[in-house]
Design a protein around this nucleic acid. Structure first.
Length: 506
RNA sequence: GGCCCGUUCGUCUAGGGGUUAGGACGUUAGAUUUUCAUUCUAGAAACAGGGGUUCGAUUCCCCUACGGGCUACCA
């Protein structure tokens, strides 16, 4: 290991969407890099043109932007090791693939997809490797002349790694410790495809080397192919520069088992993507955490705690605190089932924790897309302050704060009408007069006026408190009534009582 | 099937040869709040099984079981 600056990378394939596991991988990479004053590199694995989806790359960038995990180098901002898109680096990979062939660590294979499919059908546990490669259509089995002839003719071919015989490959994983594999059991993976594009195996090694990546953190699903990558680093002569590895545990479905997947969202009723993803081909919308009303701080926080903790009971972390206390060794080995209830709890905690002023722009947006117009930002801040402790998602502000901006469209009549009396009508009519002439408009004074009138009319306070609340907000929720009335202002409060009175007594 | 990885309350996890096995979410019961929530208090709830090693194992080792991943010219 050279002792150069820490550099980590995330290499998503732009096939649409960015799920929880992806964001968490980014997060852990980012935390590690920042903890050590290093760089976070984003490169795009658009190796397979057939699967590239328009807009997907921008979507990934936007997700990271929302989360606040800005890459130091990316296709968007560039960097010293550009280009950062695999498709723009095509020529580079061929060179190294050919080098491996020349060294005898890789070979040309001319077998067609159909031929291989046929083999798989005929032979139960067919693997392109040790056992069968000599009988197949490749430069190991063919004579030099035959191979040259095929190459000259331009017959489509791939380049495959030649797995060595009777070797065991082992390495140290920062999370799992010592891991080892027998080369005899690993097949000869394709390195360079017939269209000249690299597979992940070649690309990840070549790019990590060229971009001077020092630490490679990825999902556990990559563990089985680690020996291929290791051998590639060795054969290319770069073993001294090989990054340190860590394979992150998977995020699992909350019910049943298996990796959390895109389809689980719709099935289980919660998002699995960071932000809404609209598939340009199918027009299918996969909902995201952002649109559901999650704060980026909460989203990051809950992801970080899925498979990691700092060893204390602390659960609420800012990004800076995460950076400060992060340690890759403390990432757990076992996969974690995603728990949406806990996810919501994190969001509620963050809404409580954040100042009303910093929540204001997001709440304003939230209200506006739900048809509530906000003209006075200072007023909104006060409203947020009053109601934020009872909101779990940003979307909850629609119900919890909406009535501060518009008269209730509906009233919870079943809670008032059955017990309505003429005495109450009289009380509220009188209240309108009393409030209209109030000189000070503060919660305490309003309460005094209200209680005095209750006594004067010989009523019980419990009889009129709830109706009063429902007049102002429409239902049985919200902060203290007098706080609401104070915020609403005299004119609005009086008007609402009048309007509601008509509805109640209709 | 083969290979690899894993296994502490329902879930996320702490711990680690001798602990009343700790916390959080959820849940239950109370308190507070003349609404709803917040808040507070209390409760139920876990070391997969079997063998070793050891004075002692949930902790270390082995086996089994279970779970997961990979096994494409996808990443």
């Amino acid at each position: 290991m050279s002792n150069s600056k820490v550099r980590v990378r995330f290499a998503p394939s732009p096939t649409g969407g960015l799920h929880l596991g992806g964001v968490r991988t980014v997060l852990f990479n980012y935390l590690f890099a920042k903890k050590h004053g290093g760089d976070f590199v984003l490169r795009i694995e658009d190796t397979d043109q057939n699967r590239y989806v328009d807009g997907a790359e921008k979507y990934i960038l936007d997700c990271l932007k929302w989360c606040g995990l800005t890459p130091d180098e990316s296709p968007e901002v560039g960097g010293h090791y550009a280009p950062y898109r695999q498709s723009e680096r095509k020529a580079i990979y061929r060179e190294y693939a050919e080098r491996l062939v020349a060294q005898g660590h890789a070979y040309y294979a001319f077998d067609t997809t159909e031929e291989l499919e046929q083999k798989r059908k005929e032979i139960p546990n067919f693997q392109y490797g040790q056992v069968y490669r000599d009988g197949l259509n490749n430069s190991l089995a063919l004579t030099t002349g035959e191979v040259e002839h095929l190459l000259d003719k331009g017959v489509p071919h791939v380049i495959r790694i030649k797995m060595p015989t009777d070797e065991s490959v082992h390495f140290n994983d920062m999370i799992r410790g010592h891991v080892s594999f027998e080369t005899n059991l690993v097949d000869d993976k394709v390195l360079l495809k017939a269209d000249g594009m690299p597979t992940y195996h070649l690309a990840v090694v070549v790019d990590d080397y060229l971009m001077k990546i020092t630490h490679a953190f990825r999902g556990e699903e990559w563990l089985p192919s680690a020996p291929i990558h290791l051998l590639l680093w060795r054969y290319l002569g770069w073993e001294a520069n090989m990054p340190e590895w860590a394979h992150l545990p998977l995020i699992l479905k909350p019910d049943g088992h298996g990796k959390l997947s895109k389809r689980d969202g719709a099935r289980l009723g919660f998002p699995v993507y960071a932000m809404n993803w609209l598939d340009p081909k199918t027009q299918e919308l996969t909902p995201g955490f952002r649109e559901l009303g999650f704060l980026p701080e909460a989203f990051l926080n809950l992801l970080a705690m899925l498979g990691w903790n700092d060893g204390t009971d602390k659960e609420i972390f800012t990004l800076d605190e995460l950076i400060d206390s992060f340690s890759i060794e403390r990432v757990s080995k076992a996969g974690a089932k995603f728990d949406f209830e806990k996810a919501k709890w994190y969001n509620a905690e963050w809404i409580k924790k954040l100042q009303a002023t910093s929540l204001e722009p997001q709440v304003k947006h939230e209200l506006e897309i739900r048809g509530v117009e906000v003209t006075d930002d200072a007023y909104l801040v006060k409203v947020i302050e009053a109601v934020k402790d009872r909101c779990v998602l940003l979307a909850d502000f629609r119900q919890q704060a909406g009535y501060f901006f518009e008269i209730p469209a509906e009233y919870d009549l079943p809670s008032v009408q059955p017990k309505w009396t003429d005495a109450k009508t009289d009380f509220f009519n009188e209240l309108i007069l009393k409030l209209s002439s109030a000189e000070v408009w503060e919660p305490v004074q309003l309460e005094v006026i209200f209680k005095y009138l209750v006594e004067e009319k010989g009523l019980k306070i419990g009889d009129v408190m709830l109706p009063f609340r429902i007049m102002l907000v429409g239902g049985k929720f919200g902060p203290h009534v007098f706080d609401i009335a104070a915020l609403l202002g005299k004119e609005e409060t009086v008007e609402r009582i009048g309007v509601a009175l008509e509805v109640f007594t209709a």
